[in-house]
Structures are given as C-alpha cells and as structure tokens.
Design a protein around this nucleic acid. Sequence first.
DNA 1: GCCGGTTATGTTATCTCATAACAGAAGGTG
DNA 2: CACCTTCTGTTATGAGATAACATAACCGGC
Lengths: 160, 160
Amino acid sequence: MGAECHHPDGVHPGLKGSALNHALGAAEQRCAATQERLTAPRRRVLELLLESNSPQKAYDLIAAFGAHGEPAKPPTVYRALEFLERLGFAHRIESLNAYVPCRIDGQSHRAAFLICDCCGAAEEFEPDFTAQLSAAAKAGYQVSTITLEARGRCAACSAG
Amino acid sequence: MGAECHHPDGVHPGLKGSALNHALGAAEQRCAATQERLTAPRRRVLELLLESNSPQKAYDLIAAFGAHGEPAKPPTVYRALEFLERLGFAHRIESLNAYVPCRIDGQSHRAAFLICDCCGAAEEFEPDFTAQLSAAAKAGYQVSTITLEARGRCAACSAG
DNA sequence: GCCGGTTATGTTATCTCATAACAGAAGGTG
DNA sequence: CACCTTCTGTTATGAGATAACATAACCGGC
C-alpha cells in the first residue's frame, strides 16, 4: 500500500479469518448493548476497514463493497461510515480523506494519528490532550471533539 | 458568518484599511527576505483571507477574486493557497475544507485551531505538542508536521 | 397480528473540492 | 539577449460528498 516506498505495511496487518469474525462479533455486541443496529451495509463497511492494512478512501470502499465486484452507491457507504464514526468503530483521517477502523478499545471521541508519508501507514495512538485542553479552557472554549494528525516517517521508513 | 447562531464574529475581526495594508506589506518583506515572490494572485488571495473574519472556502476565494466580480479559475487560487501555506501565511483547516490567514508570528510549521461549531469562528493558538511528540518518538516516528483541530463552542456561544 | 412511528436503505442526480496537463508570459542571470 | 526557471492562464476532468425522495425493515403498543 505504500505510496512512495516498498516497506512492509507493518503496523496494522489487517484482519482475516477468525480474528476478523471475532472483531465483527465484538462490534455486534457493543451495538446490541446500546440498542444500535449493525446492519448489513454497516457491517460490510466495517469488515472492509478491518481487513485492510491502510487507510481506505470512501470510493475504495464503494468499489469493494459488493461480494462479486459490484460497487455500492456512494450514500450507502457514506451512511455506514457516519454510523461507524458515531459509535467509535471508525475514524476519518481528515488530511487523507480516508477512513480507518478504530484500533483502540472504548469510545473515546478522541483520535490521534501518526501518518507515514512514505508507506502510507496510519497508526492510531492514545492521545494526551491535557496541554491543548487547558489552552482551550483558557480561551473559554468548550471542546467537544479533538483530533490530531501528525505526518512524518514511521520507524521502518526512517530506517530504510 | 455564523452557521447556526447570531453571535458576534468575535475573535478575528478581519483587517481593512491601513491594518490590511500593513499586514500585506509585512508579507512582502518576509518574501523579499527569502527570495520568494508575493505575486499579484498570491497577494490577492492573502488579502481576501486577511479581510475575512472566518475560514474561507477555496471556491469563496475563487468567486471573490476578481475586482469587479469576475471569478478566478480554480488553479489560480489553489496555487496561491499552496504558496501561502508553504510560507506559513495561511493554514488549511482540514475538517472544514477551508483556509485562514496565519494569526501567529513566525513560521512554525505547526497549527492548532479551536473551531466553534456555533458561530464558525476558528481561533488559532500556539500548540504545545510535547506530549504527542514524545508519544510519536516512542513509536519510532519522525514527525515533520502536526496539526490539531478542536471542535466545540467559543466563549461567546457557550454563554449565549 | 397489525397498525403506526421511527429508523434504515435504495436510487437518481447533483454539488463541492481539487488537480492534471500544456501553452505562454515574466523574472533573473550569465 | 539567450537561456533557464518560475509563475500564470486555460481547458478539462477527476475525486469526494450529499440532497432529495421513494421504499423497506424494525419495533413498540394494542
């Protein structure tokens, strides 16, 4: 998936087989616990995100949606993404116009990414926004969501 | 400019008259100091950003570009924005697909914004990325740029 | 069981955002 | 002024996202 290099895709290998089923099952459970429905298109989009090892563009998901190569209609996928983001199953990476499955347990409403400009990997990490939230409070802002995107080179690409 | 409310546009009033000319002059000087050229279209786009009190969409700039109502062609404005971003005169706000003039002196390569979902204001602040940079270093990343966008409500809209 | 509200999907069309590609003009240097 | 480099003008198209409306599935009360 590397845009500029041939380094291993590394960090998040993409799930398959039983690991994938397990992740989807966990999502079902989390939905059931909150009266939300993981319907077929939502489940399919989550599956596509989990299977992949790099951020996926909406139109990649649209193209890959059908089991036998038929694409989805754009609203189908955008609606599913909206749902998955709302429940914290997926994140949008603004600077890439792309989507990733959430790799961190729990629904934090906060996302932070290390994005490798070389291999295209996007690693989610647990952000410590203390400093920024205190700056926001000082300015009188009530922050509801906060995202951070750091661009650079991952360990493998720095070394290579 | 408020999307959802009628609060004062507040934080960054938008420059005009001599303040605007002064800001443009300062930009000229900074360009001259580094062998860069603040050409007519670049200067015009910077002027439009400085005049406004809220983040501007690219096509808003395109529409407002001409002195007598003639729009610019898209590449004209996008090229100017690219230049202004490169030199630190402007920032793109990813989550809005919009642009603001840099309100902080010096060329930091770092931007952080408090964005009010109520009145649409975007306030730039000096970020302290110590915590996140240390997390990135721990993961082996070499960070080149980093952006942060916090959504919420500004002081005026929280009060109102 | 079936009615009625609510939520989700299917479908068409369109809108917004951004860039590729290439020709020509302007600046700067020997 | 010849050359190279950078910037601009122009046409066309590609990528990303949503509006609007009709239909279908779910689910609670009765």
